[in-house]
Amino acid sequence: MNRQFDDLLLGSLELFCLAAEQEGFTAAATIAGVTPAAVSRTVGRLEERLGVRLFLRTTRQIRLSEAGQAYYEQCRQALNQLVEAERQVSGQQITPSGLLRISVPTTYGHYRLLPLLPEFRARYPDIRVEVHVSNRNIDFAAEGYDLAVRVRAPADSTLVARHLEDAELVLVAAPDYLRRHGEPRTLDDLQTHECIQFELPSSGRTIPWLCRQDGQDIEMLTSGGYACSDDVLAGVTLARHGAGIFQAYRFVVEEDLRRGRLVEVLKPFGGRSRPYNLLYPKLRFAPLRVRTFVDFLMGRRADGAGVSGSGLASRA
């Protein structure tokens, strides 16, 4: 069998990835203990082998070309898998370490994930955690994220989706608003109320409210003079200050409900939920820091422990 890869080529891939990550041949050479000329020659051989330019060079800097970026992402993933495979086969008992990059929506971030991170780092102090708190969908490969929490699992065969919980939805309003406008008794009553809207930032589409009537799951489009985009917590803040009725996750407003700052309305029409999932790339040998965090988070879901005693387990 003809070998496609030899030790020299694997070493060249490591130097190429290092140059891409350091954004320079000199910095890569210093770390690798070779000369900048050796790094340059190595990259040149790769470019000749592939027939493409991997770096765009100027007198001041180098940067990856479009082809180079795609090649880097695949090479880095492959090299990481080789390292993990060697560790697993050799039975090395290493301490989880390195940078863990997580993307999480604002609601789940503030009320579920972020409060758990001090406990996680107390157990695994060699893992550094970088959290991107936003409702923007991310590209795992292009942006270098290890994990993401999202509502609904995408139809992407390259990702693993682990179910975290079904987050219950409730309709809430401030006592002051209900004193001024009365409390709705039926879903039709919402037509005469100020219903705070939430719009998807990607499309501008208004999110329908999820309700249950006569045993059937329904979606309702409401109307009102307030609209929020990107951050669901803005709608909760508006509702708390008497702007109108808003549909929110129970885990977000449970403290407001307990203290009387908000009141749950239309309870007979509730009970709907949205699923939250933990997503990560499907790799045969996932980095140990990723496996460690997945096990930690799924363990918290299984044992029902969690934020303010509410847990990660399903409430719906």
Results as ranks from 00 to 15, higher is better:
L10V: 13
G11W: 06
S12D: 14
E14Q: 12
T30E: 14
A32N: 06
S40E: 13
S40Q: 13
V43F: 01
V43R: 00
L46Q: 01
E48S: 12
F55G: 03
F55V: 00
F55K: 03
T59I: 06
T59L: 09
R60Y: 10
Y71R: 09
Y71T: 11
E73T: 02
E73G: 00
Q74M: 13
R76V: 10
L82N: 12
E84C: 07
Q88G: 00
V89Y: 12
Q93S: 10
P96W: 05
L100A: 08
S103N: 13
V104W: 01
R112A: 13
L114Y: 03
E119C: 03
Y124V: 08
V131T: 11
E165V: 08
D166V: 04
E168V: 06
E168N: 02
E168W: 01
P175T: 02
Y177R: 06
R180D: 13
P184L: 03
S202L: 05
R205W: 02
T206C: 08
L210V: 04
L210H: 14
Q213D: 12
G215A: 03
Q216S: 10
D217L: 14
S223Q: 11
A227I: 10
V232D: 04
L233T: 13
A234R: 14
L238Q: 10
H241V: 07
H241P: 04
F246Y: 15
Y249Q: 12
R250H: 12
F251H: 07
V252A: 11
R259K: 09
G271V: 02
R274E: 13
P275S: 15
Y276I: 03
L278M: 10
Y280P: 10
K282V: 01
K282Y: 09
K282Q: 14
L288P: 00
V290S: 05
V294C: 11
D295K: 12
G299C: 08
A302S: 15
D303Q: 07
G311C: 02
L312Y: 14
R315G: 01
